[in-house]
């Protein structure tokens, strides 16, 4: 089986209102070029939106930038898109954030961003250190039918 990196994109975006839409559209275009289904593209776009909102609202970074990298890869049995969303902020404790999470299906006004990311993506890994920033690495797969 051969694996070929086919599409790659890096973006540095200012933390301004609705900038998450630009990030979502970019990854959506890349995923469509990879032949991913519209539902999987939509899920990815929603996950990227929540990751960017988390960075903008909670990172406390001083450079006011969100750093994004998208990598689309074709594999023998399908394709995958890797997404990295990075901020240079204060970091957070993912386990503590998960412990505050409401039960899925119960109405709750806030605190769902990370939960939505995890439910929309196939893999999610968070690297974060105190005052060292945060990177959320997300992966979405599409198997050939």
């Amino acid at each position: 089986m051969t694996t070929t990196a086919e599409r790659q994109m890096e973006l540095t975006l200012p933390m301004v209102p609705d900038i998450e839409i630009a990030a979502a559209r970019a990854v959506g275009n890349l995923a469509r070029e990879m032949g991913m289904s519209s539902e999987r593209v939509d899920e990815m776009m929603h996950a990227v939106i929540e990751a960017c909102i988390n960075a903008r609202e909670h990172s406390g970074c001083t450079d006011n930038r969100i750093y994004l990298r998208f990598l689309g890869t074709s594999q023998g049995d399908g394709s995958r898109v890797d997404i990295w969303v990075t901020d240079h902020g204060k970091g957070f404790d993912p386990e503590e954030a998960r412990s505050r999470r409401p039960t899925p299906g119960t109405p709750h006004k806030r605190g769902r961003g990370l939960q939505l990311i995890e439910l929309h993506m196939d893999e999610v890994d968070i690297s974060t250190t105190k005052n060292g920033g945060t990177t959320i690495h997300m992966v979405k797969y599409e198997k050939k039918s």
């Binding site: 939509d42 899920e43 299906g105 119960t106 109405p107 769902r112 439910l119």
Partner: peptide
């Protein structure tokens, strides 16, 4: 996806 999100959010 919005339907799924609404279910997650309650």
């Amino acid at each position: 996806v919005i339907h799924k999100t609404f279910q997650i959010m309650g």
